[in-house]
Design a protein around this nucleic acid. Structure first.
Lengths: 356, 356
DNA sequence: GGCTGCTATGTTTACGTAAACATTCGGTGG
DNA sequence: CCACCGAATGTTTACGTAAACATAGCAGCC
């Protein structure tokens, strides 16, 4: 292509971007007219518009978003602050956020927090203050937010995903309680006398709420509440916890707080010779893409991360546009996905005790 | 709106951010001095500096990054363009990119491409032209890039992750061939006569390269090359392919192009009563966090996504700073992780006869 | 004592855009 | 025929920052 063989004509030296002024010069109009064309304003002569467009194309003109942002006072950008992307949930949420934002003409800027300490979070928030961002979506355990929030520049709108700061910020959350209730009911309906619980880390609000809901569901059904076993979300921790659960002879049903721990649990049970679902039923939470391929395919509570992401963006942009902060919580419903890891309670103990 | 209705005291209505001028007024200095303090320049009197800092704090001053970018001519931002985040690899790479970029004072902006068509990609690239970005990292199958690349503004630097556009852009890639070779050798060393292959989708360059390397490794060892079975990276597709592989009586070793397909494969084999690793050895690729908890724990080729991300940022920033495009490929080595899904070839008919 | 050279600070200007305001011009109605 | 209108376009200005240049004050030196 003849792009810039030797700089034949005028200013081909285009080492920086062309500006409106450049376009204006080439098109023989004022830069204001270029601006009008650029922003699709009416009231520009057809022929003039064409000339301007030609000049733009010719020069490879792109509007400078910094100048635009400076002039307009907003950035058309949403920041996402998150501790780790390494969980399916965060990742899927992020993806939905990015997509929704793009549809609205907003860009998404990532704000990683290396270590989940208050200092780190506070640091991220204050970096964010200097960042070109109109709103922030926080995907994180909320108690880390508690004292960090104060340093936020006042005009930045905040949405918190999967947490519970409903009194201070807009929150979009999965219906943890509902999903948990469904899971426990499912198991009780299958004839299990009670449901054990492989809980997530205590620092996590999501985990905590699943645990609370599990306890409530059992209590309201008048069942015994076994002591929960705690993991850290990882499959490995699920395995370790699973080894302990496998020793509880009367454990016939386990509600794992996420699918990965359920995976580890399945391995532990297999290793200890307890069959799933014949001896023990296992249910997870999340419905990660792989869970249908576990051994056996995992019954689990499906979370609609994409919807969470969408609603986060929705709330963020509503706040930006109406320049008014929102509060309160939006719940996104879950859906029970029954696969093969849950089944009727084993015969045995119906009356008495059974030990393998 | 009391915006500027009566302006009670001086600008207490702080609906917008304070600017340098505001700080300067409060501190009783010129805005240039504020700038110097803000940027940590030397040559400012200790006492003056303190006064300015106090005023900043007082007003909650934050530098306006749009204005800064406009003045400086760069954005301190890297764009990441990617088709999907839903794969562990992309996600981990992204996370590493975000972290490395943050360390260098760069923000990361996400540029999602909904559907992997050329038009979509081209669209993303041209949106990107208007975006406040100094460099772009592309995480995507490269052939979609082929004709889209041209629309990129000339001064935006490009790095391509996990692909092979080494002649046109800087590329950072995992050493697919090396990892594959290790995997195949490992299986052959265990006495398997040959290694079957559960391949990734044909559109994927990474998949293609793993397939090529697998073939080469077998050929150079003088072994037969069974027809590869193709999946689409998902566990489900691995399961379906696995059902077919399970019927090949002479199939004692399978190299799956990623861990998720290996997961599905494990399930298919289990379902068909073929034990792993006693009857069939399975090896994966990626080393996703869960793979150690599969049934059995998966032997796999570990990819250092974090390193890939780091090097992407490194190259991107180098290009930005030296304002000179790079080319060529950087390979990040892999590491074989031996767990329990691979074992010695079964006794069977193999004893000695194998045909090349 | 006047000049040099340095430090601390102030003033001007430009970055690219777009709102607000100004101008031109061909028509239209009283 | 002229005041007036609206359409098309031009001119001025401001957004917040920081580079470049300018100034003021003071110490040291011949």
């Amino acid at each position: 292509m003849t792009t810039n063989g030797r700089a034949p004509q005028r200013g081909t030296r285009r080492t920086q971007n062309a500006s409106m002024a450049d376009v204006a010069r080439v098109a023989g109009v004022s830069s204001q007219t270029v601006s009008r064309v650029s922003n699709g304003f009416p009231g520009v002569n057809e022929e003039t518009r064409d000339r301007v467009l030609a000049a733009m194309k010719d020069l490879g003109y792109r509007p400078n978003s910094a100048a635009r942002a400076l002039k307009r006072g907003d950035f058309r950008t949403i920041g996402v602050i998150t501790f780790t992307l390494s969980t399916t949930g965060n990742m899927r949420t992020l993806e939905a956020i990015a997509t929704s934002a793009a549809q609205e003409g907003y860009a998404v800027t990532l704000l990683p927090v290396a270590v989940p300490t208050q200092d780190e979070v506070r640091g991220a928030f204050s970096r964010l203050g200097e960042l070109a961002v109109d709103a922030v979506i926080v995907i994180m355990e909320v108690h880390l937010l508690d004292s960090a929030s104060l340093t936020l520049p006042p005009h930045v709108k905040v949405v918190v995903a999967d947490s519970d700061a409903g009194d201070r910020y807009a929150v979009v959350d999965t219906d943890q309680a509902g999903g948990t209730r469904d899971a426990v009911r499912h198991l009780l309906d299958l004839g299990h006398r009670t449901v054990w619980h492989l809980a997530g880390p205590s620092e996590s609000f999501a985990a905590q709420r699943r645990t609370d809901a599990w306890r409530t569901a059992l209590e309201s059904a008048g069942r015994a509440v076994p002591p929960p076993v705690r993991g850290d979300w990882s499959a490995e921790s699920g395995y370790r916890a699973g080894l302990r659960l496998a020793e509880q002879a009367d454990c016939t049903a386990v509600f794992a707080a996420n699918d990965q721990m359920a995976l580890g649990l399945l391995r532990a049970l297999d290793e200890r010779g307890r069959r799933v679902p014949e001896d023990v039923s296992v249910i997870g939470f999340d419905d990660i893409p792989d869970s249908g391929s576990f051994l056996p395919p995992l019954t689990t509570v499906h979370q609609d991360f994409a919807e969470v992401g969408r609603r986060c963006v929705e709330s963020a942009l509503r706040q930006v546009r109406e320049s008014e902060a929102e509060r309160g919580t939006t719940l996104v419903p879950t859906r029970l996905v029954v696969r093969e890891s849950t089944g009727r309670a084993p015969r045995g103990p119906g009356g008495g005790s059974f030990r393998p």
